[in-house]
């Protein structure tokens, strides 16, 4: 189904257009708008972005697939991004990851059957002083232990 932005998002789009001297430069920020409004980006969203920005859909696809942080359509309600890079690994991030894997019964890049959680191993989140770190949707959860993580997950509905 072709998608359209609602009026509020269109307003944001218009404001963005004033900020950049080329149309191509709108691509990353407008993908963010699509991510926000549709809670994940699929082919239809890319088509919409392509039309608005005025670039071919293939270019949107090429740019979108380069960046790992955009939310893909079909992600769970909660995206659990577990940092696995060295500073976190030195402080037990592997244990955190294994715990989640077991608890949720899914591996990295997979989603639970009820659509609630998506698990993803990611690289350094820029929070190495408070490792291990998991980013859940937009929020950082720091200095984690498996117990703390369980408590946090229990609160997520």
């Amino acid at each position: 189904m072709p998608k359209t932005f609602n009026a509020k998002t269109m307003e944001k789009f218009q404001a963005l257009s004033q900020r950049y001297p080329t149309k191509d430069a709108l691509l990353l920020p407008v993908l963010r708008l699509a991510e926000e409004e549709f809670n994940g980006i699929d082919d239809d969203a890319m088509e919409l972005v392509a039309g608005l920005v005025g670039v071919p859909p293939a270019k949107v696809m090429s740019v979108f697939t380069f960046y790992t942080h955009y939310r893909r359509a079909g992600s769970g309600k909660y995206l659990l991004q577990v940092c696995s890079t060295l500073p976190c690994a030195l402080r037990g991030s592997q244990e955190i990851f294994e715990h989640l894997k077991k608890k949720l019964g899914i591996d990295s890049e997979e989603t639970t059957k009820d659509g609630k959680f998506t698990l993803k191993k990611v690289e350094c989140l820029g929070s190495c002083g408070t490792s291990p770190v998991v980013q859940i949707n937009e929020d950082y959860y720091e200095n984690l232990t498996t117990e703390k993580l369980d408590e946090i997950l229990n609160k997520l509905q």
Binding site: T22, K23, D24, A25, L26, L27, L28, P29, L31, R32, V53, V55, V63, F66, Y67, T68, H69, Y70, V122, E123, C124
Partner: peptide, 20 residues
């Protein structure tokens, strides 16, 4: 806002990223 790519910290990669 970037979107998850270490290479966009490198200055020319960063500029290309802003350019879309």
């Amino acid at each position: 806002r970037g979107a998850g790519a270490y290479i966009c910290g490198e200055e020319t990669g960063l500029l290309t990223s802003i350019e879309g």
